[in-house]
Amino acid sequence: MNRFIYFDNLRSVTVLLTLAVLLLQPWAAFYEEGAVVAISIIFFISAYFGASALRIRTISFFLRDKWKRLGWPGMFLLLLGIEEQLVTGSLPVTSWVLPWLFLLFAGLALVKQVNHNVLQHRTASKPSLPFLLVFIALLAVALFLCQAFLPQILLIPYIAQIRPDWLFLSFFAFALGVYAFRHRWFTPSGYQPKGRALLGFAIMIGVYAAWMPGKGATILTALTPTLLLIASVLGLSACFRQQFNGHTAWSHTLHRLSYGLFFVSEPIILHAMWFLQPLAVAVWLKIVITALILAIYGYLLCRYALLHIPCFKSKG
């Protein structure tokens, strides 16, 4: 299928949001809701385009491509966590994204192996109320059980720290992306979210910031990120389709570099903050210095090194 430029732009901006989340971890409210938005968008769009690719390709070719794009870079990041733990004393928090996304694609390929027609297009439709209610109920229950009975953070020594609730959230965002592809959302003949969906996104951002910090496991703390996931996907896609459905020189450069920038961001931030930690300066100044280091060093590394490695080259 033809790529949607606004999806490319949205994913690129989401990478910048991820960098901001990593830089601004001391601000709990922004960190939590920013992570939910970033996870929702990245896994939804990845599933949408991944399902399209798997529909027209053989399973073996698809898995080889995903291993090249996600598998070995993800394994490298997990191994790099050992070095980061030894040097900085901190474990990475996003290293799980690439291996987890690869496992989700492998599971989708297995589903296709069992039912070859599972990814064929259905009649173009819009999100129905029964579907949305079932989706919201299932994810809210999953998040509630996760918050109530699982630790907030699972530590894999010397490799990474993983939030179980984010694993569930990303799984459902991925499933929603596959469903949207099958039912031809965002296509000319299918469902197109309206501008008012952006209002729903803005409302949920406010609700999340006001409600979530410091709360325990309740049905509301499970329902809020669930609604924010849906609002992020529909609201931001509507906004970008209307306002950012074309490439400029800046957006095209960011699109080409975004995957590599996502790949190198956490190691750069962890090491920069570790070296800056002894300085007797304000936290905000350390964050600004770290952001400048990331912007300059990350750009040079992506532009002149990673873009020459096949797995980091842009496909769009």
Results as ranks from 00 to 15, higher is better:
H183C: 02
P164S: 07
P164I: 09
L167K: 09
V178T: 05
F168M: 13
R184G: 13
W166I: 09
Y191M: 03
W166G: 03
H183V: 03
Q161K: 11
T187D: 09
A175Y: 09
L176P: 00
A175Q: 09
I159V: 15
L167Y: 06
P193N: 15
I156V: 14
I162G: 10
F171C: 13
F186G: 08
P157N: 07
V178K: 08
G190C: 00
Q192K: 12
R184V: 04
G190Y: 00
T187S: 12
I162N: 09
V178S: 04
A180H: 04
H183L: 05
P164T: 07
W185P: 00
P193E: 13
G177L: 06
I162H: 11
Q192W: 04
V178L: 05
R163S: 12
Y191H: 13
Y191A: 05
G190H: 00
F171Q: 05
D165N: 07
P193R: 15
P164V: 05
S170N: 02
P193W: 13
L155P: 06
D165T: 11
P157A: 06
A173E: 03
L155S: 06
R184K: 15
S189D: 14
W166L: 14
G190V: 01
T187L: 04
L155D: 10
Y158L: 14
F171E: 03
I156Q: 05
Y158I: 12
A175V: 12
Y158A: 10
F174C: 00
G177Q: 15
T187W: 02
Q161T: 07
S170C: 06
Y158P: 02
R163W: 09
R184P: 12
S189F: 03
I159T: 15
F186M: 08
L176S: 06
W166N: 13
L167S: 12
V178W: 08
A175F: 11
G190R: 00
P164L: 07
F168S: 08
P193Q: 15
I162L: 11
R182L: 01
G190E: 00
A180F: 11
I162F: 06
W166M: 15
F186E: 10
Q161R: 07
R163G: 09
R163C: 01
I159D: 05
A173P: 06
A160K: 04
P157M: 05
F168N: 08
P188K: 01
L167W: 09
D165I: 01
L155Q: 11
S189R: 06
Y158R: 14
Y191K: 03
V178M: 08
F174K: 02
Y191E: 04
F186Y: 13
F168H: 08
A173N: 04
D165C: 08
A160M: 11
Y179L: 14
Q161N: 07
A173R: 01
F171D: 00
Y191T: 06
P188C: 02
S170M: 10
P193G: 12
P188Y: 02
S170Q: 04
T187M: 07
